[in-house]
Amino acid sequence: MTASLSDSYAYCQHLAKQTAGNFYYSFLALRREQFQAMCVLYAYMRTVDDLGDHPQRLPEERAASLKQWRCELERVLTYQAHSEGLPFDPCFPALLDIIRRYEIPQRYFFDVITGVESDLEPVTYETFDALTDYCYHVAGVVGLCCIHIWGFHDERAFDAGIECGLAFQMTNILRDLSEDIELGRVYLPLEDLDRFDYTPDDIQARNYDQRFRSLMQFEVQRTKEFYQNSERLLDFISPAGQGILKAMYRIYGGILSEIERMEYDVYSSRAGLPKWRKLLIAGEAIVASRWNSSRSAR
Rank of each mutant, 00 (worst) to 15 (best):
V186F: 05
N207A: 15
L183N: 12
D176R: 08
F196E: 02
R195D: 10
L183A: 13
T199W: 01
F196H: 05
L183V: 12
D176V: 03
H153Q: 09
Q204I: 15
D154E: 10
L183I: 08
V186A: 04
L188R: 08
E179T: 10
I162K: 09
L174C: 08
D201Y: 10
D159C: 13
N172V: 05
E191C: 12
D201S: 14
R185F: 05
D180K: 06
D180S: 10
D159N: 11
H153N: 09
D180E: 09
R156T: 13
G165Y: 00
D202Q: 08
Y187R: 01
I173P: 01
D194T: 13
Q169I: 04
L190A: 05
A167T: 07
I203N: 06
A205Q: 15
A205C: 13
R206A: 15
E155P: 11
V186T: 10
R175I: 05
T171L: 02
Q169M: 06
Q169W: 07
L174K: 05
D202F: 00
G161L: 03
D194P: 11
F168W: 02
L188C: 09
R175D: 08
L190Q: 07
L190N: 00
M170L: 15
T171N: 00
P189M: 04
A160S: 10
L193E: 03
L174T: 03
V186R: 04
D176E: 01
A160D: 08
G184R: 06
E191M: 09
L193C: 03
D180V: 05
I203L: 15
D192G: 10
F196Y: 11
T199Q: 01
P200S: 02
C164T: 14
R206F: 11
N207L: 15
E191W: 07
R195P: 09
I181D: 05
Q169E: 07
T171V: 04
Q169H: 08
G165V: 03
Y198V: 00
Q204N: 12
N207F: 10
I203W: 08
L174G: 04
R195A: 13
Y187C: 02
P189Q: 07
R206M: 14
E182I: 10
N207D: 13
A157G: 03
T199C: 02
P200L: 01
G184S: 04
H153Y: 11
E182S: 14
R206V: 09
I162P: 06
E155S: 10
E155D: 12
T171M: 03
A157E: 01
T199H: 01
Y198C: 02
G161E: 05
L190S: 04
A160E: 09
V186P: 01
I181G: 06
D201R: 15
N207S: 14
